[in-house]
Write a protein that binds this DNA or RNA. Structure first.
Lengths: 108, 108
DNA sequence: TGACTATTTCGCACATTAGCGAAATACTTA
DNA sequence: TAAGTATTTCGCTAATGTGCGAAATAGTCA
């Protein structure tokens, strides 16, 4: 589907971080890290109302973090910036990789 | 210096993203990416008042993104999570690395 | 000790955001 | 076309976050 987007510079770091600044939206990214989901999956995952989740999704989409695609009656979302999910995974596992945290999460 | 921190799990992704969810704080991280700074440097960089910058710094510190160290009269801050600055740099340069964005910012 | 500098904490006014339910929209199938 | 499902938009209230100046703290030096 993809509605007309704001013409702001896609992927800009400030916008991405702002979009990720809410735990529900990080949860959404975690879900999408495993593969695309329809909105119904994400509503269940975050445990908030449909309208609320829908707005969280639009925030992430406007920031260029995720993409939506309408197929039939459903809308499927997927990650547009795979490095985001990798970054999250790294932050979630600091104790498992103490030296990687110091050296930059293993990202060369 | 390092005051008593909240005992929450350091580096947790939600907290990190929340801390980075304000442009002034991203600016701070950008500055610190080049090396440690005293508060005075950061106040100039973000263009806000001392008290405001000080609070932004405490948010970042509480999230485990930066570290403070008092030396003499001044307090110096530096990055605690180098991968954050790398991630920002990657997000800032999407057009320069279109395929890396798709493949994960070159982070293996 | 007293003055001085660097930084943080406090309290407040203002702005932004979150979450909700109802209504609107879009697509599909009968 | 009518009805049904999936999702988004709207309007509102409550909660949270921001920025500021004043006051508090801490370290240095005369």
């Amino acid at each position: 589907m993809s509605k007309p987007r704001k013409p702001k510079p896609a992927y800009q770091a400030d916008a991405v971080f702002k979009a990720l600044g809410h735990p529900a939206r990080v949860t959404i990214i975690r879900e999408l890290s495993a593969g695309e989901c329809c909105v119904c999956d994400l509503v269940e995952a975050v445990g908030l109302g449909w309208s609320t989740v829908s707005r969280h999704l639009s925030v992430l989409r406007d920031a260029g973090v995720i993409l939506d695609e309408k197929r039939g009656v459903q809308v499927f979302y997927r990650l547009q910036l795979p490095c985001v999910s990798r970054f999250i995974a790294c932050l979630d596992q600091p104790s498992a990789f103490p030296d990687l945290m110091t050296e930059g999460c293993g990202c060369k």
